[in-house]
Each structure stands twice: as C-alpha cells, then as structure tokens.
Design a protein around this nucleic acid. Sequence first.
DNA 1: TCAATAGTTCCGATATTCCGAACTATGGGA
DNA 2: TCCCATAGTTCGGAATATCGGAACTATTGA
Lengths: 109, 109
Amino acid sequence: MRPLFHPALDDVRPEAILHALSDPVRAAIFTQIAGMGCVQACSAFAAVGDRVIPKSSLSHHIKVLREAGLIRCERHGVEMRNHSRCSEVDQRFPGLIAAILNAYAKAGA
Amino acid sequence: MRPLFHPALDDVRPEAILHALSDPVRAAIFTQIAGMGCVQACSAFAAVGDRVIPKSSLSHHIKVLREAGLIRCERHGVEMRNHSRCSEVDQRFPGLIAAILNAYAKAGA
DNA sequence: TCAATAGTTCCGATATTCCGAACTATGGGA
DNA sequence: TCCCATAGTTCGGAATATCGGAACTATTGA
C-alpha cells in the first residue's frame, strides 16, 4: 500500500486549515483527535453526536484533515491511527488551532 | 431597498467564519477591511493582488463575509461602505480573527 | 429626466460534496 | 495455505455550491 501523503509543515496553508475545520463534522473529529491526547482509529468517529457518518464520508473527512496538515495517519495492522499535528502547526501558526477549537467549544459545536 | 441582513453577535457561528475566510480572496478583502481601520467601498476590491475580481463575484464575497458576521455594510449614497466587526467578534471568539489574519500574513497570502 | 456610478440578481457552466456499493489491505484462525 | 472478518479506500452519480457574464436596480448629479 502506498504511503499516505502528509504535507511538510512549511507547505501547510491557512486556507486548507480553515477549509478543513469549517465543516462542523470535521471540526468535531479533529477536536476529538486533538483533545483526547491519545491516538484514535477512524472507526472511533462512526458517529458524531447523534449523527451517523457513513464510512466513505468519514474516509473523505480524514483525508481532508490529513492533507490540510492537521493530522498524521499511520496504519497499524488492520486499523489506521490518527495523531494530531497540533504542536507542529502551532509553531507555524501560533494560536490558530487553539482559537478555532475554543470558538467551537464556546458556540457549542 | 430592503436592509441587508447582519447576524446578531450571538448568532455568529465559527463554521461560517472559517468558511468565509477559507477563501484567499475573501481573506484578502477582509484583511484590508479589518487592517486599514477605515471603511472601504466594494469597488476598492476590484482587484486582489494582480487578480481581477468580477463585480458579481465580489458582491458574492462581500455577502459571505457579511452573513458570517465579519463585516457590516451600509449604503452611503451610491456606494456601499464596509466596516469590520472584528472587535465584536473578538469578544465572542477571543483571538480567533487575529490568529487567522496572522496565519495568512505569515504564509504570504 | 437622463446619464453615470456602484452593486445586485439571474442563470448556465463548472467544481465540490455526499454517500451507497464495490473494492483493497491486513491479521487471525483452521 | 485459504478463507473470513475487520478497517478503510475508491468509484460514480446525484445533490449542492461556486464563478462570472449579462441584465437589472438604486442612487446621485447635471
């Protein structure tokens, strides 16, 4: 299986990050990956709130987050493990992710 | 002419802000409205960088920014004046707009 | 009233998103 | 080794959103 594409930190674009997190479902997924601290398999997001997310849509959402540079995905056996790249991205765009996650938390995403 | 819709501060949604600013053209327009401090007519954005923006597209972009709660638009005579709502939005989502504009500035939007 | 300026609306072409169905990759038995 | 179950990806078509030219509306000044 070909390795998944992850942008280098210098290639991460603000518009990609904003686009990725402008979808409440993706924002919720990313909040969980970033906030839990621990690595999450995609199957952990089969539902967001009470909304069921089809596998194909979920796969697409994870891909958008990955290509935006927000998460890193590695296959471990049969499952994919998703790590946040928060600390990297925060170096390049200080405060950006925190402000976005705070905004969603306050608005009650 | 019917008055333009502006969301109340409490109705401003993070996803709308991120979506509005995930387009580099809109981000550039908003940077100019927010950063110049002074009010700008739409015609000030007939071009962004060296890219010409058609009037209809420009009108659409301004509408997206307005409906996201980022700007306030008022007709003054024959032209429309666009004010930023930065300070309001910053009360509701502290640091969000600053972090986004900093990110674009750093990436060289 | 007419012309000029500033924006808006309409609408067709293009691009994106969504999701079910089929497919691929990996690991664990028997 | 072969088969099955699990986890995720890809394909493809329907629904939706975006872009921009042309026509339209609103306002001011002559």
